[in-house]
Design a protein around this nucleic acid. Structure first.
Lengths: 191, 191
DNA sequence: ATAGCCATGTAACCAGTTACATGATTGA
DNA sequence: TCAATCATGTAACTGGTTACATGGCTAT
C-alpha cells in the first residue's frame, strides 16, 4: 500500500485540506493512484497521530471551517526513506480481461459491444491526457524542469491509453470478423 | 471484485483442486488476475455453500487426499450472466509511478537504479510471454480457435510489457542524462 | 540434511468500498 | 427547487495480505 505515501507526496508539493486532497486524487497523481474522501480523512487522522503531518484550522464565514494539512519534518524524512525503497512491479488486475478469457461463443456479440464501450471511454481519457500535455510544451524551460516528474508520469498514462486502444481495436476486429491473429504481436523496432 | 468469477472461469475450462487453482493463478489467467492459495480455499468454501461449485474427495496414497472441484449448472448460469454484464475500466494503480511523481533531485540516482531493475524484470516477463505465444502459432486452425480467448489476453500482456519497457527506457534516459522531453508522446499511425 | 512440491487450512490484520449523515452557499 | 461544490466525518462490510500450522514425498 502507499496511500500514506501518496498523501505525503501531495502534501510535500503543497499543503491542503482533506477535501482538496480527495479532489487531487481525481487528476494528476490520481490518474494512477486513487482514493476516496473517506479514506483520505481516515489516513490524515493516522498521519497526524504519527506526527508526519500537522494542520491548522482556518475559519471561513461563507464555507465550513477547514483543516489545512501540511507535511512535517519527520514526514519529509519518512517520505524520503520511502522513495529510496525499491517498489515491486505490479501485475495487471483487470475484470475485462477475465471476461475476454472466459467468454464463450454465445457471448461474443455482447463482448464486442462491451469492447466498443471501452474503446469509447479510453478515447475520451486519452483526449483528456492530451490536453493535460499541452501546457507542458507551452511552458519555458524552468517551468518544464519544475513539472518534469508529473509530466513523465503523464506520459506513462498516455502510452497506457494508446496501448489499450491498440489492443481493444485489434481484439474487436478479430472477434467481430471471426478472424484469428495471423502473427505474433510485433516488437517495435528501436528508434 | 471478481475472484469468484475468475474461479468459475477456470473451473469452467476444467475441474481442479484448490492447490491447482492457486497454481493456475500464477500463469495464464493469473497474469492479469492473481490470488493466493488462502484466498482460493476460502472462496471455494463460499462457492460450495452457494452451490456454484461441487467437489469429490480423491484419496491418494503417496500424496495428501485432494478435493477436486467442478462448476455446477447453476455456477455456469451465474458465470454466463456475469460475462454479459458491463465491466468498468480500471485505473492504473502503481507504486513506482507514485515514486516517480514524488521524486526529488537528491533521489534521482536511486530512482534511475530502480528503473533499471524494473527494466530487467519487465524484460524477463516479456520473454516468458513470448515463449507462451509460440505454441499458438505452431498449432493447427482448430486448436487455435479453441485457445483464441486466452491467446488474445496474452497479447494484451505482451503489449503491456512492451509499453512499460518503452516508458521505462525513455524515462531512464531523461533522468540519467538530465534531458527534458522535447515532443509529446507520438501517436502511432494506423497500419 | 535441506529445499521444494503437493495439499489443506485458520487467524489477524490492513486496505478499500458503499452507505449513511450533516450543513451552508451558489448557480441553473 | 434541484444539483453542484465545499467541507467533514462514522459505520459496516468486503477483499486481500501476511503469518502461522501441518505433514508426507522426492530430488540434490
Amino acid at each position: 500500500m502507499s496511500l500514506k505515501h501518496a498523501i505525503l507526496v501531495l502534501l510535500n508539493r503543497h499543503p491542503g485540506t482533506g477535501y482538496d486532497l480527495a479532489q487531487r486524487f481525481n487528476s494528476g497523481l490520481g490518474n494512477f493512484w486513487n482514493a476516496s474522501h473517506q479514506q483520505v480523512y481516515q489516513e490524515l487522522k493516522k498521519l497526524d497521530k504519527a506526527k508526519l503531518v500537522e494542520f491548522q484550522v482556518e475559519a471561513q464565514s461563507d464555507k465550513p471551517d477547514k483543516k489545512v494539512y501540511r507535511i512535517t519534518r519527520s514526514g519529509q524524512r519518512d517520505l524520503k526513506a520511502w522513495l529510496a525503497e525499491p517498489a515491486q512491479a505490479t501485475r495487471i488486475k483487470d475484470t475485462l480481461l477475465v471476461k475476454v478469457f472466459g467468454a464463450q461463443d454465445e457471448g461474443i456479440p455482447a463482448l464486442v459491444a462491451e469492447l466498443d464501450r471501452h474503446i469509447e471511454r479510453r478515447r475520451k481519457v486519452l483526449e483528456k491526457y492530451r490536453e493535460m500535455e499541452q501546457p507542458y510544451f507551452k511552458a519555458d524551460a524552468s517551468a518544464r524542469r519544475e513539472h518534469l516528474m508529473p509530466y513523465l508520469t503523464l506520459r506513462r498514462g498516455i502510452r497506457h491509453q494508446l496501448e489499450w486502444l491498440d489492443w481493444l481495436t485489434e481484439t474487436r476486429e478479430f472477434l467481430a470478423e471471426n478472424r484469428l491473429p495471423a502473427k505474433p504481436v510485433p516488437s517495435p523496432r528501436k528508434r
